[in-house]
Design a protein around this nucleic acid. Structure first.
Length: 302
RNA sequence: CCAGCGGUGACCGAACGGUUAGGUGACAGUCUGUAAAACUGUUUUGAGCAGGUUCGACUCCUGCCCGCUGGA
């Protein structure tokens, strides 16, 4: 068994439900690819599901004040995948964090280069044009290939400088290549019109508030600070600086907008990182379609 | 009824007698250890209405309409 099923898609498209159904049918185990659900104690705000009888891996693995990143995710996910496969079960990756999913599919040579927090401490307080100059001097060739978006992104420039200074590897554009695990991957991405997604997001926000989101935040703040990495998350960060008691309408509206924008960014991501199948969940027969695709793939030279 | 202040593009909101405000949102993107992050591009010269002054008015003047505040 070297099969790996991936279910991706923007928020509020029913990825987990689908994964649970498939897991039950094919004796599978679910691995989450969600950069926020890795945090313990952040349940309501991140919409964690706890389906009966099915365990979801890679959720609740670190505390909100701990740092985490794709490279760590990749390692954990790849180990889990092999573990599950060795049990002769089907691993199913489910999530909306495109970068995390990509890290499982494609090998990233720069993942060996660890962040240099000492260096970052200094670079972090430099203005963008200085960072540009530094990177230009260090790595002129690659600097010139950067697009407008990346040249102005200090976070990414700093990482490039970090990589260059590590002296291990030079970052080349397009050096992404499939991982060497030889997985037989089926990647299905769910999609829907943005209007439908927005509707679902808005009702979901209301139910999260009713479910006690504000209390969850209060509890988190007893142990953690707003500046902790985990709290930099939609549904939480909008409430920074409020007393969490009086009129929160404005904050909720902003949260709503951020949530919509996030869904659009996810759509953009999955549009580009073309999966095998794009399934429009607003079509009535979408479940049958998925069943056919999965069955066919699953039974292929088993 | 009187007085004061104000009416700017989907929204908020400046400056200025002639030159792109800016922000938010929206739309489209970027993506190799923060990714629910960070960043990029685009968004018909718009000015409550009617006149006037001026070479030229969002900017000055007059009238009207609307809103807020204070007073009878």
């Amino acid at each position: 068994m070297n099969k790996l099923l991936i279910i991706s898609g923007p928020t509020a498209t029913g990825k987990t439900d689908l994964a649970v159904r498939i897991a039950k049918k094919y004796n599978g185990e679910i691995i989450s690819a969600d950069s926020r659900q890795i945090y313990r104690g952040m349940d309501i705000g991140t919409g964690k599901d706890h389906p009966k009888n099915i365990k979801i891996h890679l959720i609740d693995i670190i505390n909100p004040d701990e740092k985490f990143s794709v490279a760590q995710y990749q390692k954990l996910a790849l180990t889990k995948i092999t573990e599950i496969q060795n049990k002769n079960k089907l691993p199913i990756i489910v999530g909306g964090t495109g970068l995390y999913i990509d890290s499982v599919i494609n090998h990233k040579p720069t993942f060996d280069i660890k962040p240099n927090y000492f260096l970052r401490f200094f670079l972090d307080r430099l203005p963008i044009f200085i960072l540009q100059k530094i990177y230009f001097i260090l790595d002129k060739k690659n600097y010139l290939t950067l697009n407008n978006s990346d040249v102005n992104n200090s976070r990414r420039l700093i990482r490039r400088i970090e990589i260059k200074l590590s002296n291990k590897n030079s970052l080349l554009k397009g050096t992404s290549f499939p991982n060497d695990k030889g997985f037989c991957i089926l990647h299905i991405s769910l999609t829907d019109s943005i209007e439908n997604i927005i509707k679902k997001i808005d009702t979901r926000i209301q139910s999260r508030l009713k479910a006690g989101l504000i209390n969850e935040i209060k509890n988190l703040l007893k142990k953690y600070k707003w500046s902790d990495p985990g709290l930099n998350t939609l549904a939480y960060k909008e409430f920074v600086g409020t007393d969490l008691v009086s009129a929160l309408h404005k904050e909720i509206q902003v949260w709503q907008i951020h949530e919509h924008q996030y869904a659009r960014r996810q759509k953009t991501w999955f549009k580009k990182f073309t999966p095998d199948f794009f399934i429009d969940i607003s079509k009535p027969d979408y479940q049958d379609k998925i069943n056919n695709i999965v069955t066919k793939w699953y039974n292929k030279n088993i």
